[in-house]
Amino acid sequence: MTTIVVLGSTNMDLVAYVAHPPKRGETVTGRAFRTVPGGKGANQAVAAARAGGDVAVIGAVGSDPFGERLRHALEASGVDTDLLRTADGPSGTAHVVVDDDGGNAIVVVPGANGTVTALSPGDETLIAAADLLLLQLELPLSAVLDGAAAAHRHGVRTVLTPAPVQPLPPELLAVTDLLVPNEHEAAQLTGVADPLGAAQALLRQVPEVVITLGAAGCLHASRDCAPTVVPAPLVRAVDTTGAGDTFTGALAVALGEGRPVGEALRWASCAAALCVQREGASTSMPYRPEIDASFAPTHAPEDDTP
């Protein structure tokens, strides 16, 4: 079983469903509202655990009722929360607007996540025993760098999702093994709009890149092989919140199991396709039997070389 540690955020998603998102100064009427456990770190942890990984999370929740609910939700999906600390004050929140096309806009308020500025006692030991460390940018950058450096010292593969996007310091890129941005993040990081061009620019900084392309699938590029595009399954999206985290969590499991990259990407794409057909983030993430059932490698389309 793949052992995965996630150093990342845990938020309560406050989700409003609307026909179209409001413009500046506009008020719209929503059709539904839900509170859903989320946060990029927690989402990736849940996705990886449901996909069959042995997963632990490092981070923080608040001392409010949201904190208790967030911890319980992680544990209910099989995630080890022994090193998920409780900080005085509110938990992190994400204020999400989902439109009828399944698109979303999100405002994140860090809350307790902002207290995680470095590794704490026991964190490095946990990381050292893992196969992979998953990282995102909803924690302070100092903690992300601390975790990535610890993983690098112990030969643990690091997977970084650069979201919310921000300039990445060279010292973080130097200890990143796999970078997984979406196409918009890749463009912002490189100044190159074309995903293939962005991937080639990123390969000058990290050894391997997967750029997610939404309904178009994903682009894989590394210093060792030609870039390939893996198409996504054709589905009707209801809510795309959490799709990228589902993809990354499932991809980490597949890579940890030693699957070939193309197969791992197709399997992760199946997981993300299942996620977008349901409302919510962590609540929409599929379990391994569902992913396996939707994954048909003998009928999968061939990868396209750009």
Score class of each variant (00 low, 15 high):
residue 1 M to R: 14
residue 3 T to Y: 02
residue 3 T to E: 11
residue 3 T to F: 00
residue 7 L to A: 12
residue 8 G to N: 06
residue 12 M to V: 05
residue 15 V to H: 00
residue 16 A to G: 10
residue 17 Y to F: 15
residue 19 A to Y: 09
residue 19 A to I: 06
residue 21 P to S: 10
residue 22 P to E: 07
residue 34 R to V: 13
residue 35 T to M: 14
residue 35 T to I: 05
residue 40 K to H: 10
residue 41 G to P: 09
residue 41 G to F: 03
residue 43 N to Q: 12
residue 47 A to W: 00
residue 56 A to P: 05
residue 60 A to V: 05
residue 62 G to F: 03
residue 65 P to E: 11
residue 69 R to A: 13
residue 71 R to Y: 04
residue 72 H to E: 14
residue 75 E to V: 11
residue 78 G to Q: 11
residue 78 G to S: 10
residue 79 V to S: 06
residue 83 L to D: 02
residue 84 L to N: 02
residue 85 R to T: 15
residue 88 D to H: 12
residue 90 P to A: 15
residue 92 G to K: 08
residue 94 A to W: 01
residue 103 G to V: 01
residue 106 I to R: 09
residue 106 I to H: 09
residue 111 G to V: 05
residue 112 A to W: 04
residue 114 G to E: 10
residue 117 T to M: 08
residue 120 S to T: 06
residue 121 P to A: 07
residue 126 L to G: 02
residue 127 I to T: 03
residue 128 A to S: 15
residue 130 A to P: 03
residue 135 L to N: 11
residue 138 E to Y: 02
residue 138 E to P: 02
residue 140 P to F: 04
residue 141 L to F: 13
residue 143 A to F: 08
residue 144 V to A: 12
residue 145 L to P: 01
residue 146 D to E: 10
residue 149 A to N: 09
residue 149 A to W: 02
residue 156 V to F: 07
residue 159 V to R: 01
residue 160 L to N: 07
residue 161 T to H: 14
residue 161 T to K: 05
residue 168 L to V: 11
residue 173 L to A: 15
residue 173 L to K: 06
residue 177 D to C: 11
residue 184 H to S: 15
residue 191 G to P: 08
residue 191 G to K: 13
residue 192 V to T: 14
residue 192 V to Y: 05
residue 197 G to M: 12
residue 197 G to Y: 10
residue 200 Q to Y: 02
residue 200 Q to K: 14
residue 206 V to W: 03
residue 214 G to T: 03
residue 219 L to Q: 01
residue 220 H to S: 12
residue 227 P to D: 08
residue 227 P to M: 13
residue 232 A to E: 02
residue 233 P to T: 07
residue 239 D to K: 02
residue 240 T to Y: 05
residue 241 T to W: 00
residue 243 A to P: 05
residue 247 F to K: 00
residue 248 T to F: 00
residue 251 L to H: 06
residue 252 A to D: 03
residue 252 A to N: 07
residue 253 V to P: 07
residue 255 L to V: 15
residue 258 G to T: 12
residue 260 P to D: 15
residue 261 V to G: 00
residue 262 G to S: 13
residue 262 G to P: 01
residue 267 W to N: 00
residue 268 A to S: 11
residue 269 S to G: 15
residue 270 C to S: 14
residue 272 A to N: 00
residue 273 A to N: 06
residue 274 L to R: 06
residue 277 Q to V: 08
residue 277 Q to T: 15
residue 279 E to Y: 01
residue 285 M to I: 04
residue 286 P to Q: 13
residue 287 Y to M: 12
residue 289 P to E: 13
residue 293 A to S: 12
residue 293 A to R: 14
residue 294 S to F: 03
residue 300 A to N: 10
residue 300 A to P: 01
residue 302 E to W: 04
residue 302 E to M: 04
residue 304 D to F: 06
